[in-house]
Structures are given as C-alpha cells and as structure tokens.
Amino acid sequence: MYEQIAFYLFSVLTIGLFLVTVLTKNILYAMTSLAGGMVFISGFFFLLEADFLGVVQLIVYVGAVMALYAFAMMFFDATRDIKEKTTNNALVFFLGGMVALMLVIIFVAPIMGENIQAIYPPIEGAGNAQSVGLVLFTKYLVPFEVAAVMLLVAMIAGIILAGKKMDESLTTSEDDDDDDILEQEDTK
C-alpha cells in the first residue's frame, strides 16, 4: 500500500515540477523545478530497489549537473524574464499530445515476450550496490573505462571552451611582470 501512495505522489509531483520547468518564463524557476523534479526521479529509483542508481542520480544530476546549470545561468545574466516569441502552441501541444498518446497505447498493450531471460540477475543475499559493483567491474568494464575517458575529454573540452587567455602560460613565460600576480593587495 505504501508503494502505491509513494508512486502516485511522486508521479504527480514530478509531472507538476517538470511542467513548471517547461512552461515558466523565469529561468530561475525553471532551473529550480528541474532540480526538484530530479530529486523525485531519484525517489522512483529507490522505489524500484535501485539504490545505487538513486544515489548516483542525486550526486551526479542534482549535485553536479544542476550546479553546472546554475553557473551557466549566472554567466548569462538570466535574472530577467525571457521574452520568447509566441510559438505555435497548437502545433506543439498537438505533437506532444500525439507522442504521449502513441506511447501510452504502445505501452498499455500487453507486453510481448513472456519468455525473456534475465541476463544479469541480481545475486541473492547481496545488496544492490554489491550486485551493481560485481556486474559493472566484470561484465561492463570496458564501457566503464570508456565512459571515464569520455568524462575526461568532456572536462578538458569544457575548460578550453570557457577559458580565457589560454595562449599564455604563467609557468614557462619569461616576463617579470607575471610576478605581479603573486602579490596580494592589501585589504581594507
């Protein structure tokens, strides 16, 4: 019973928060509601006994990704309201509605394939984190490493794209004026 209450509560809240994200004109509201929605998504994960995934969602998405967005928002001076041209709302709602309808129809239809074999079933007795760790570091090792490299690349790309005065190097340059940087100004 608790499961049902939790499910419906979480779903209503998630849908509501995401609607705010999509419909509001204030970027701050959008960002905040997005972060809130993601927290509840993580709630779903806990409902589905995917503890590790839920925690990862909280740390990565709500923590890191939303922090990134917050920094980006500061950079763009987005406290003003966004003026957006009136789009063709009818078309948008129609398309969105159609997609929703199609997906619902597809998913409501009885799911085929009763004889699906589980490839990596969870191990009895071990918690979710242990099972995930076992599968991740044995069967999914290569994707794991590749993902790591990809994150490294993304980080470097982010630095280069956003950095200033990248041509000059403080350590190898011969200028004496560079030492001025090390001086501290007196604070008053």
């Binding site: 590790f52 967005y69 994707p143 790309a157 982010g158 794209l161």
Partner: peptide
C-alpha cells in the same frame, strides 16, 4: 524482469548526460 542490465544502462546514460552538459554549456 529481475535483470541488472537496465540499471547499468541507466547508469551509463547518466554519465553520458553529464559530459554532454559540460560540453554543451561550454559551447
């Protein structure tokens, strides 16, 4: 379906989304 594959996939999607956000915001 009692299979860990789905969680693995979700895990990697999170990783990809994070890096995508980084690069995207830089651009």
């Amino acid at each position: 379906y009692n299979d860990l594959t789905g969680q693995m996939f979700a895990f990697f999607i999170i990783a990809v989304a994070a890096s995508e956000v980084a690069v995207g915001l830089g651009l």
